[in-house]
Amino acid sequence: MSVNQVSVFLENKPGTLNKMTQALAKGGVNIRALSLADTNDFGIVRMIVNDVYEATSVLKEENFVATFTPVLIYAVSDETGSLDKILRAFTESEVNIEYMYAFAGKKNAYMIFRVTDTKKAEALLNGKGLKSLTQEEIAEV
């Protein structure tokens, strides 16, 4: 199952990112993973959070534009070659990665993948023995 990532537009001004984290903190939203795509004059924050609906509603109240983006998350064990093994499955399935980032859980590391056709990619990777995590599973790790 794909997971809903929260993507937020950020204008390029000191304090904007902090204003966003403030809103999330106030709303009791826990950020599990975060990555920032930046250009010269604006950025997009991508986050995995514990409560996507609460996150988007508090962000909207603070006048941020946010949207959900489906992403695939896989566990990467802490041993040599485990990321390579996952990416090989992507290569063999001819799945194109738009961007990826990672976070560390209690036991494993986790890679977050944004791909062009999430549903198709998930089925192909499932065939290779890769099981993506669900929203509920993310909350546990």
């Binding site: 990532q5 993507s7 537009f9 604006f42 997009i44 534009v65 949207t67 944004r114």
Partner: peptide
Amino acid sequence: EMTPDMFTDNV
């Protein structure tokens, strides 16, 4: 101003 309609996750 950015609007929800004009925003996407893609830079």
